[in-house]
């Protein structure tokens, strides 16, 4: 019951997964299955929220120096949840507008700012990578610099543009394609192992 049935379920649903990919007549059934997966997965959110709560409760209970910030998480989470749920049942209400504003002026700028931090991270990563002194790192450096220049090239530097185009067309495509094919084999092998029950780490592993 604890191990055999889960393995059997993985096998049966694995076969279903294969079948819906090759039999067009199962299209309607596939939609049902996709709904199933969405429904089943949605309940895991309760576990996620409970885990997050436990994480922050521990900080508060231990009087961690950052416990104030754990309260910030709780308060905003509850606030978002309450205005969002009331807003769902009362469309066009103040709650829904507030929910929209929280999304547009809190979530969106935070998201965009985190993304923008990448400008600095990529610069520092480039600096470190380009300091390395192996021939491989030099190749990486040269290709990187040429493409950076190629993307902003003008006038006599247009040659970088041509080299960039060639680098993207031939070596980059070749490398990425070789990788993609290998990755495809890895994905298929891992999937087969799971369906056949050879790989069972996802059940905690062990016997």
């Amino acid at each position: 019951m604890k191990r055999t049935l889960p393995l059997a379920l993985a096998f049966i649903f694995g076969l279903i997964g294969i079948a819906v990919q090759i039999v067009p007549a199962l299209k309607g059934f596939l939609n049902t299955m996709l709904d199933w997966m969405a429904i089943i997965g949605s309940f895991a959110l309760a576990l996620g929220v409970s885990s997050l709560t436990r994480h922050h409760m521990t900080k508060i209970r231990r009087k961690h120096k950052d416990m104030f910030f754990s309260y910030v998480t709780f308060v905003t989470m509850l606030f978002m949840m309450i205005i969002g749920l009331i807003g769902y049942f009362q469309p066009e209400s103040l709650y829904q507008r507030l929910f929209g504003n929280m999304y547009n002026y809190v979530r969106v700028p935070l998201d965009a700012s985190m993304f923008a931090l990448l400008a600095f991270f990529i610069t520092s990563a480039a600096y470190r990578a380009f300091r390395a002194r192996t021939w491989l790192a030099t190749v990486l450096l040269v290709a990187g610099v040429v493409v950076m220049m190629g993307r902003v090239a003008f006038g006599p530097f247009m040659i970088f543009n041509d080299i960039t185009a060639w680098l993207m067309k031939v070596p980059t495509t070749a490398a990425m394609r070789g990788l993609t094919i290998g990755i495809g084999l890895g994905i298929v092998a891992t999937s087969i192992k799971i369906v056949l029950g050879i790989e069972r780490s996802y059940l905690g592993g062990g016997e």
Partner: peptide, 25 residues
């Protein structure tokens, strides 16, 4: 809770086999 996990993992694994072979390889 292993039941929903194995159903989800099994389904998506099976689902990936033929399409990955087609698109990735």
């Amino acid at each position: 809770s292993r039941y929903p996990i194995s159903i989800t993992v099994g389904f998506w694994s099976g689902y990936a086999i033929v399409t990955s072979f087609k698109t990735n390889i």
